[in-house]
Design a binder for these strands. Structure first.
Lengths: 236, 236
DNA sequence: GGACGCCTTTGATCCACGTCAATACGATTT
DNA sequence: AAATCGTATTGACGTGGATCAAAGGCGTCC
C-alpha cells in the first residue's frame, strides 16, 4: 500500500510550498499533489525540451540541473536538496529548458502546474509562498553569477562549501560534516572550474586546516577561516 | 497635465505584463499601475536592502542591475530594456537584493506588488503571464551562468551582441545597428571579463569584419559569423 | 574654444587556471 | 585476492585573460 503524500505530515514543509499556510490550506495543497515519483541515481526527472506540466518538490534525495549546448559543453546550473522545488524554468516556454538529474536515489512530489495556479488563485498564502520560491531562485542565480563572474577558484569553493553547510543545517544535519553527492567534475562545472582545480583547492584547504577532505566526505574545521577567504580579496 | 499611464495604449504591451490579457483585463491592470517614475541616468531605481513594495515595468530607457560585495567587488547581473520587469528579486525576502541603476534617463511603471498579487488572483491570464515573466528571468540567468561558466571571452561577447540584437529587433529597432548604453567596464562585469578584454574582443571582431565598432555605436556586419563563434569551440 | 574628465584602445608582461599525463584510491565484480 | 572501472589527486607545462601602463578620442562645462 502506497502511503498517501501528505504535506501536513512532511517534515520539510517549513522549507517547501506549504510554508506559511494554515492547516486547512495545507490539506488543500495535499489534494493537488497528485503523486510521488521515484527517480534512481543518474536518471532524469525531466530533460531539456520536455513539455512542461508540473513542478516538483524534492521529498528525498538530491538533484543537479544542467544546460547543454549543441557542441557538447555543459554547465551545471544548480544542486537541489530536499524541500527545494524543481522545474520552474519550464513555465516560461511551456517546455523545460534544462535537465534535472538525480544525484542519488530520490523521490519527488509531482505538483501539476495548472492546478497549482488554480489553487493559488484561491489561497493567498500559497500564491505568496510560490512567488517567494521563484524569487529565491532568481536571487540564488544572481549569487552564482557573482561567484562565476568575479571570484577566484578558492573563493568559489569556499562559497560553495559554506552554502552547502547552511542548507544542511536548515535540514537538521550537521553544519560541519557531510557527504558530497556530486563529483569533482560536477562541482567544477557548477563553479566554472576544471575538476583538477577543484581538487587542488580542496587539497589547499586541507593543508591550511580549514577542512578535512576524504573523497566525498567533508568535515569543515574552520568556518570563520572559510568566510575569511571570501572577503580576503584585495583587488578590484 | 500628466498623461495617465495606460497599458492599453502602450506599444510595449506585447512584451510586458499585459501580454495575453483581453482588453477588459488590461483596463483592470491599468488601474493598479499606480504611477510612473522618471529616473535620471546613473540614478538608482532601488538599492540592495531597500524594502520591497513594487515591481517596475520599464516604459522608456534602460537599466542595469548589480550586486556588490562588502569588499567592493561588483557584478552586473543584467541589462534591462523597455517592456522588461525589474524588482522580482525583492519578493523572496521583502527586501531588494540588488541595485537597479538607469543607464540613461528612463521611466518606469510602478506596480505595487500586493495589488498585483490581488489582481492576479482574479485574472488568470495575468497570473500566468506574471509567472512566465519570473520563469523567463530564471531561464535567462541560466543562460548567463552557461556563458560565465563555460565560454571564452569572444564567445561571451558574441552571445551578448546577438542577445542585444534580438531584443532590439523585438522592439522594432534594427537588428544590426544600435547604440550600447553601457560602458566597456559594465559589459565586462556582466560577462566576467575586464574592460580591456572586452575592448580587445571588439577590435578582433572588427578586424575580422564581423562588426563595425565606433565607441558605443555597433553595426553587426556578419550575424552568421558571430553565431559561428558561439559553437566553434572544439574542446570540452 | 580650451581644458578637463571619462571612456576606450593598444601594447607589454604576468599569473591563475587549464591542459596533459601519470598515479592512486575505493567500490564492485569475479 | 586480483582485476576493472570510475573518481580523485598530483605534477609539469602552456595559455587566455588579467594587470600595468601609456595614449588617444569624445563630450562637457566653464
Amino acid at each position: 500500500m502506497e502511503i498517501k503524500t501528505a504535506c501536513s505530515q512532511c517534515n520539510l514543509r517549513e522549507l517547501c510550498l506549504p510554508f506559511g499556510l494554515d492547516p486547512r490550506e495545507v490539506d488543500q495543497l495535499d489534494e493537488l499533489v497528485g503523486s510521488r515519483r521515484k527517480i534512481k541515481r543518474q536518471q532524469h526527472l525531466y530533460r531539456s525540451g520536455d513539455p512542461f506540466e508540473a513542478i516538483y518538490a524534492i521529498r528525498a534525495g538530491s538533484f543537479k540541473t544542467d544546460v547543454i549546448l549543441e557542441d557538447g559543453r555543459d554547465q551545471v546550473t544548480g544542486f537541489q536538496m530536499t524541500g527545494e522545488v524543481l522545474g520552474l524554468d519550464g513555465i516560461s516556454s511551456e517546455h523545460h529548458s534544462c535537465n534535472a538529474i538525480a544525484l542519488e536515489d530520490s523521490e519527488v512530489c509531482v505538483i501539476p502546474f495548472v492546478r497549482l495556479e488554480e489553487l493559488s488563485r484561491q489561497v493567498e498564502s500559497l500564491q505568496h509562498q510560490f512567488h517567494k520560491i521563484m524569487s529565491r531562485e532568481i536571487v540564488r542565480d544572481h549569487g552564482v553569477m557573482m561567484l562565476l563572474g568575479s571570484m577566484r577558484a578558492e573563493e568559489r569553493l569556499a562559497a560553495f562549501l559554506l552554502n552547502l553547510s547552511q542548507r544542511f543545517t536548515a535540514r537538521g544535519f550537521s553544519p560541519s560534516e557531510f557527504h558530497l553527492r556530486m563529483t569533482r567534475d560536477e562541482i567544477g562545472s557548477y563553479l566554472g572550474l576544471k575538476l583538477e582545480t577543484v581538487s587542488r583547492a580542496f587539497s589547499r584547504f586541507q593543508d591550511e586546516g580549514l577542512v578535512a577532505v576524504q573523497q566525498k566526505h567533508i568535515r569543515i574545521l574552520d568556518t570563520p577561516g572559510l568566510k575569511r577567504i571570501l572577503n580576503h580579496h584585495a583587488s578590484s
